[in-house]
């Protein structure tokens, strides 16, 4: 499999000062652009910030918002905050797994959709909540979630 097209990478790298404190912002931008962190991009970040690759990798592996595997084109996140847990997030997750044909925490083989859990998105009053591509949908019911097809 050919790697992703990284021609936009230099521009991203140069948009921030070459300082170690820019590591997380840069990784976040790369994640946003390619929906994951390509290995070559991590090497370029390490070189740009004069950091050992191991340290860049450690930081990249620490934060939940960053991933090494490409995320799907559509991102479905089930909130697992306390209020959502109390109001049946587990049932919502189960019905989404069924209707989207993908396991929790995985990306469907066709690369179209990723289903994952997320820690509280701060819309607790409307629990249970599902986030679709960053937009929050409140008061989702298990059977209602089953209607979602992507």
């Amino acid at each position: 499999m050919a790697g992703p097209d990284l021609s936009a990478l230099p521009e991203i790298l140069e948009s921030r000062p070459a300082d170690p404190s820019e590591l997380l912002p840069l990784l976040t931008m790369i994640q946003g652009r390619w929906r994951h962190l390509p290995q070559e991009a991590l090497r370029a970040v390490a070189a740009r910030l004069s950091l050992p690759l191991a340290r860049v990798f450690a930081v990249a592996s620490f934060y939940r918002s960053l991933s090494f595997q490409p995320k799907g084109e559509r991102l479905v996140q089930v909130c697992c905050g306390t209020a959502c847990h109390l109001k049946g997030a587990r049932a919502v997750a189960a019905s989404l797994e069924k209707s989207l044909a993908v396991r929790m925490g995985a990306t469907r083989e066709d690369g179209r959709v990723t289903l994952e859990s997320v820690n509280c998105v701060g819309a607790c009053a409307l629990a249970p909540v599902v986030m679709l591509d960053g937009t929050v949908h409140g008061k989702v019911s298990g059977p209602g979630a089953a209607g979602l097809r992507l």
Binding site: P17, A18, D19, P20, S21, E22, S50, L51, P52, R55
Partner: peptide, 15 residues
């Protein structure tokens, strides 16, 4: 944000 001149131990790849 600009860096802290006195803050980074890493220089030239080898701390």
């Amino acid at each position: 944000m600009p860096g802290e001149p006195d803050s980074c131990a890493a220089g030239g790849g080898v701390p």
